[in-house]
Nucleic acid binder design. Sequence first.
DNA 1: TTGAAAGCGCTAACAA
DNA 2: TTGTTAGCGCTTTCAA
Lengths: 339, 339
Amino acid sequence: MSNSKKIVTLDDVAQRAKVSKMTVSRVLSGKGPVAIKTRERINELIKELDYQPNLLARSLSSKQTMIVGVVVNKRDHMFMVDYTTKIISGIMDVALRHQYQLMLCPVSSEDDVRGEYLRLIRSKMLDGLILLKRKQDDPYIQELVEAKFPFVMLNYKKYSQDINFVDAKNKQGAIMATEYLYSKGHREIAFMGGRVGETNSNDRLSGYKEALKKLGLKYRAVWVIHGEYHQEVAYRECGKLLDMAQRPTAIFCADDNMAIGVIKRLRESGLKIPQDMAVIGFDDIQIASMIRPALTTIRQPIYDIGKTGMQTLLNIINGTQQKAVHRLLPVELVERESV
Amino acid sequence: MSNSKKIVTLDDVAQRAKVSKMTVSRVLSGKGPVAIKTRERINELIKELDYQPNLLARSLSSKQTMIVGVVVNKRDHMFMVDYTTKIISGIMDVALRHQYQLMLCPVSSEDDVRGEYLRLIRSKMLDGLILLKRKQDDPYIQELVEAKFPFVMLNYKKYSQDINFVDAKNKQGAIMATEYLYSKGHREIAFMGGRVGETNSNDRLSGYKEALKKLGLKYRAVWVIHGEYHQEVAYRECGKLLDMAQRPTAIFCADDNMAIGVIKRLRESGLKIPQDMAVIGFDDIQIASMIRPALTTIRQPIYDIGKTGMQTLLNIINGTQQKAVHRLLPVELVERESV
DNA sequence: TTGAAAGCGCTAACAA
DNA sequence: TTGTTAGCGCTTTCAA
């Protein structure tokens, strides 16, 4: 008569309560009418038996899993330590509040991305997907669209009726950064960006260009560098900049990691920051305030992007949100020591 | 005749192949005999129809989900940015290689932890659990043990037949740190640790004590501080240390974050590091090498702990691993500028 | 080498 | 307010 370790099912509860499974199911879901007395009896029994619904069975039947996938880049996430943690925190906080679970979905950047997306949605395990920082040219996103699968892209921008995104005001931030450098007396400003395909980097570049024009500064193609959001790459590229006949007096880095690489390089070259060369970053990652000189940067609200993104996804899943969501969250200048 | 958007099931493949579901199922799993010709035909059909198994149905039937839960502390993970990312990377890499998925399971530290664990295992969604840095006194782990649910604890230590863990050689690391300080001429060494309940902090403290004894140094209770693995707490506690009549000449911090807080405090007090006060940390998080002075610390192999942990869990799930796994991975001294 | 039957534990839809 | 029936899409078990 082991009543302890056996798996308790809906049926067990129903039998003990002398009702049908449906009644118990109704109590559980809170939907549908159940007599108060019956409900109480069943609730007690549930506690007594320590009954926990089998989520697999429930999902299979109801076609809802209450699980959302977070698509991270297999390789990149190690370099985006701060970013990944913050954004997932935001996503998680909203998910938790709505009883949703989070599944980590690492996807490679090159191989068979198409297959991976398809597998994710066809497996029926997920109610929706949140994509972190995908590249602009990821053509397989179309697969998600065609399958009418609910998804939201974060730190990505594309004004399409089929794509929901939450991003920061990158262009405006870039303008702020450039104007700030200008206000500090800089007229020769270089731009160091990420990969060409990233919408973030593109937007920041276009903000930089627009600001130059507005300020009446000359745009020089040689001072625009496309690297990658990594310290090492920035360190290397910064060297090239220093070797030029005509050096800029300030560098606007489209990413804090790049800014850190740049600062490292500058210090090793014996240059004083900001006197000999000013540096401004973008993001305001944790390290930004800890390095010396502390990094002046444009802060983007990563945690909030995560929150808003998850909230949006939930609205889409529930059908509350009908038309496409295109949100750009505000950024702010954080003045520290590097400019 | 829409052959495109309809959901393709096992049955569809079977019918088109003019075989029973079972045969297709056998092809999919690779188990059980299937005639080569049949197998080929079915494989082609699977590709042609772009069939993807419904994982919910499969799991419900087979009682295996191929999903492992990673239990993180709801609050802490934001402060353990570097740690969380690294360890999950390690876990993820192994999981991926074995076709396992990862589910994030945020658990609060106080509220109804017991209920949360129970819910996780009873929901039948997970094949196993990896717990990150739980407190020593978490009594509800017993629930997992009693349910005979496969789980592994990381950065936790308890020699029990019922508990599998992978941790770093914390005690040895602490001895290394203390001896290193000694070798640099320090005879008055303070210890700043985390919460009393954490096995990590305990082990590091006991290493410190052992080293003192071995080196013939006097142990002073007032120089042992129990704070929390946070910069702010360390910053505050460091102040107390500085106010003492008799100051130490070196501080061994049981965690890099604490060391950073300490360094900040020391600098603000106008003390030179390491001349006026030496500081050594533990972990070697990313920032350690970036702050000034760069932090001398004991590196623990976090990524490897993740990998080993996941590998261990898989062995337990498969029944390959019978007796308890108690692994301690080696640490190493990283000499930089703060000692 | 293949198939038929039964069932995993739940919910949707309808009926009473 | 409650119950019945019929699946969800797969695997297990046993039989052919």
